[in-house]
Simulated scan of single mutants.
Amino acid sequence: MDRINGAGTIDIGGGRRGFRDENLVAGIEGTEVTALWLNAIQEELLAVIQDAGLAPSAEDWTLLLQALRKQSLKPMTADKTYWVRSDGNDNNDGSANDPAHAFSTLLGAYNSVRSRTFANGYKTVLQLGTAGNYVGLRHDGWPGQIEIKGDAANRANYRLTPVPGDLSCVSVLDGRQLRVSGVSLVGTPGADARCAWAFGGSLELADIDFRSSGVGTLASVLAEASGNVTLLGAIDVYFARASFALCIGGASVYLGNSLVTALINLQSDGLAFDEGFIRVSEGGRVMRRNVTISGFSATGKRYAADLGGIINVSGGGENFFPGSLNGTLATGGQYS
């Protein structure tokens, strides 16, 4: 007898063809359908229904149709805000700032938006509705522009923690655009390599606290693989890594822009940036646009540039960045 295999095809002497009925008169055996294949189909249909936020029910025979309709991508016609709060639910629609409507996680909101909408050139705002700790977000799978928004005046109370497996509180990859404002980025001491990471994508950080309970590795801000990071508004630094900003692989970090000043303020005394407060390598660039730096003093090198990395402070001088040691240049690194 022909048998449906685990891959959902019929094995007939090594060939493949469709189902067939049993015909005893003609001596034709019918197709035997295995439980494995039927279970696989059932699990796949269940996954579609649950991903659409629907609850399986033996009383409703239209769930698959409802799920497919919900999954159809709809073009956005304007910027859209979705609410996220810790007492919400990821099966909600994010339409209001209350437990009955808000999502509970940034990832839940992100997955819902990208599975149902086409950005069409508009921005999606994920607005944190209540103070608290939230796992951050990796923006890598949807071409729309995303903004994560807390409260600039109370950003110490809106805390983003690292994404499991990503080691960053926020990250943007492969040509995507992400803006983060009014939050604290809270790294895990020793384990994580960055609070904010742009790998080939564009990341804008506005009114941000960089916080941690101890010293980690690499840098608070990491830009690489031709990605870029722009710092705007109040940038308060409460802890030190090997560097505050590390820029490599043709990436760029911009300190302010033509319209908004970056106000970098060291909020703790004796912060140690051993590899340079600013470090560039492999063609990376850090560019002064519109920035002031104030607060406590720091120890370590002010900057380090090598392998064609460029730091441009527009004539700000050797002591422009905080630190207790002179900056260093090597193998084509530039500082001006």
Rank of each mutant, 00 (worst) to 15 (best):
Asp236Ala: 00
Leu167Ser: 07
Leu203Gln: 12
Ser226Phe: 07
Ala156Gly: 06
Ala198Leu: 09
Ala152Ser: 14
Ser168Val: 03
Cys169Lys: 02
Ala191Pro: 04
Ala153His: 11
Gly150Leu: 05
Gly182Asn: 02
Leu222Pro: 00
Thr188His: 04
Ala152Ile: 14
Ser181Gln: 10
Arg159Gln: 10
Gly214Tyr: 10
Ala219Pro: 11
Asp209Gly: 03
Gly200Phe: 08
Ser212Gln: 10
Ala223Asn: 02
Gly216Val: 02
Asp209Leu: 08
Ile208His: 13
Asp207Glu: 15
Val221Asp: 13
Tyr158Lys: 02
Ile208Arg: 00
Pro189Ile: 01
Asp192His: 10
Ala219Thr: 03
Leu185Cys: 01
Thr217Ile: 13
Gly150Thr: 09
Val172Cys: 14
Val172Trp: 13
Ala219Gly: 13
Ala225Met: 08
Trp197Ala: 14
Val221Met: 10
Asp236Phe: 01
Ala193Gly: 14
Ser212Asp: 14
Ala206Lys: 05
Ile208Gly: 00
Gly214Lys: 03
Leu232Tyr: 01
Ser213His: 04
Gly150Ile: 03
Arg159Thr: 09
Leu218Glu: 11
Thr217Asn: 10
Ala193Thr: 15
Val183Lys: 02
Pro162Phe: 11
Arg155Val: 09
Asp207Gln: 06
Ala153Met: 04
Val163Ser: 13
Leu178Tyr: 07
Ile148Thr: 06
Val186Leu: 15
Ile148Ser: 07
Pro189Tyr: 06
Arg159Ile: 08
Arg159Phe: 06
Cys169Arg: 01
Ala153Gly: 12
Gly216Arg: 00
Asp209Trp: 06
Val172Met: 13
Asp192Gln: 11
Lys149Arg: 08
Leu160His: 06
Arg179Trp: 12
Ala193Cys: 10
Gly187Met: 09
Val221Ser: 07
Val186His: 10
Ser184Lys: 00
Arg194Gly: 11
Ala223His: 05
Leu167Gln: 01
Arg155Leu: 12
Leu205Lys: 07
Val186Glu: 09
Ala193Ser: 15
Asn154Ser: 08
Ala219Asp: 12
Ala156Glu: 12
Ala206Tyr: 05
Thr217Leu: 10
Asn157Pro: 02
Pro189Gly: 00
Ala223Pro: 08
Ala152Thr: 06
Asp166Gln: 12
Leu231Asn: 00
Gly227Pro: 03
Leu167Phe: 14
Val221Tyr: 02
Ala156Cys: 03
Arg155Ser: 07
